[in-house]
Write a protein that binds this DNA or RNA. Structure first.
Lengths: 124, 124
DNA sequence: ACCTTATTGCAACTTTATTGCAAATACCAT
DNA sequence: ATGGTATTTGCAATAAAGTTGCAATAAGGT
């Protein structure tokens, strides 16, 4: 664990929203932390491998976002199509469905992604 | 409707799997249909606007895929992590959940994406 | 056939992400 | 602390997906 990685981790800890690589880069530079964009990519990759961070690929965003996994329960997201705000959904209705799918398709399911989009209260 | 657009549409009609822009380009060229990659992108965009085609952004693929919407019911997908095969799931367990989310978050939900990944019968 | 409008191809460009390599930093044993 | 090894970082170059501007071509109506 280097100071650069600590800085990325600390940023993710104090940020509610899942951040993209560019956002991590920009925010750290605002805080006078010198970090290369390549290092951001490599760092989130390492943190993901270590199981500390989750990678999110939200529909039609065309980029990856990263959020802290540490101590968080399995959850999903809803994104506002106007302002881009991302809110956590502390539910998952897919346990039974997963079993049904395994029966119907003969796949072994090992993951799923679920995301909602819509209009947040402010943008309605 | 031009012959180029007909060719893309016809390809999507006879293909089971959702295709990426590059795949559409490659397959049409194999069939001696001269089409520019840019035109593929513009065509699928138009077909999407017309409501004929659905855009899929599957998790961690890093590209968009397109499938025919025409006459198909709302559905989701499961993708094999080994061979990349994509199979349709003719179910959607999210109607009640959507209402719950609208109550909890005050968002107006207008869409969702749901995708499963795992191992297909052949790759297990 | 003619004229207008929409579509296509080419080239250049944008954005997100990855790779190679040399320099800098962290870690460990002494 | 000091030195040596392995890891990490920054820079430059590159890759891949997708977009934009513009001139040339094709489509459609009268």
């Amino acid at each position: 664990m280097t100071r650069t990685r600590e800085a990325v981790l600390a940023l993710l800890q104090r940020t509610r929203q899942p951040l993209s690589a560019t956002e991590i880069f920009d925010r750290l530079h605002q805080e006078k932390v010198a970090i290369d964009l390549v290092t951001v990519y490599r760092t989130v990759h390492v943190l993901k491998e270590l199981g500390l961070v989750l990678q999110l690929d939200l529909h039609q965003e065309g980029l990856s976002r990263y959020e802290l996994k540490e101590g968080r329960k399995h959850h999903h997201h809803i994104r506002c199509q106007i302002c881009g705000q991302i809110v956590d959904l502390l539910l998952c209705p897919l346990k039974k469905v997963t079993k049904l799918i395994e029966q119907q398709t003969q796949f072994i399911v090992d993951d799923h992604t679920l995301e909602f989009t819509g209009l947040c209260p402010q943008c309605q």
